[in-house]
Amino acid sequence: MPIELHRIDDRLIHGQVVVGWGQPLELRFLVLVDDEVAASEWEQELYRMGVPPDMRVEFVSVAQAIERYSTFAADPRPGMLLTGDIDTMARLCAAIPALRRVNLGGVHHRAGRAQKLRYIFLTEAEESELRAMAANGVEISAQDVPAARVMPLAQVLAGEALA
């Protein structure tokens, strides 16, 4: 299972990813899928600064991720694929039939978003996009760190954890 987690996290590479998941999963590579970061050497250098030397980072655009996914998936070392938003992950899921499980790791507060979990805030459009992904067979759950409870999408959208 070379790509252990397909994660949506608007903080991209940060403590929860590198330490929280990186250590228990013994991650050896990260695939950061973001068109803006893939086009900026400065942004890439910024993210590299936060990654331990034994963890490789690939910065790819959505198109490159789709093209190279099978190579990433064939890597025998444990890895994580990261997107900064739901739309990017939805585009990957639509183009990559093998990508059937998605982790909601962090979608934080912004104008127009409603709180669903402590670390998940969604617009109506984002909710619709997640429902569409699930309807197409993608298993979606929320979990910010490994020790946290896994919340299936239906419970996330129902806001059950806030009740």
């Binding site: 903080r11 940060h14 400065w42 600064m49 936060g50 990654v51």
Partner: peptide, 16 residues
């Protein structure tokens, strides 16, 4: 607090 943290990423971006 953390070199790999979003706090530092944000600070570096602002510093730019």
């Amino acid at each position: 607090d953390l070199p790999a943290g979003s706090t530092t990423m944000a600070a570096r971006r602002a510093q730019r």
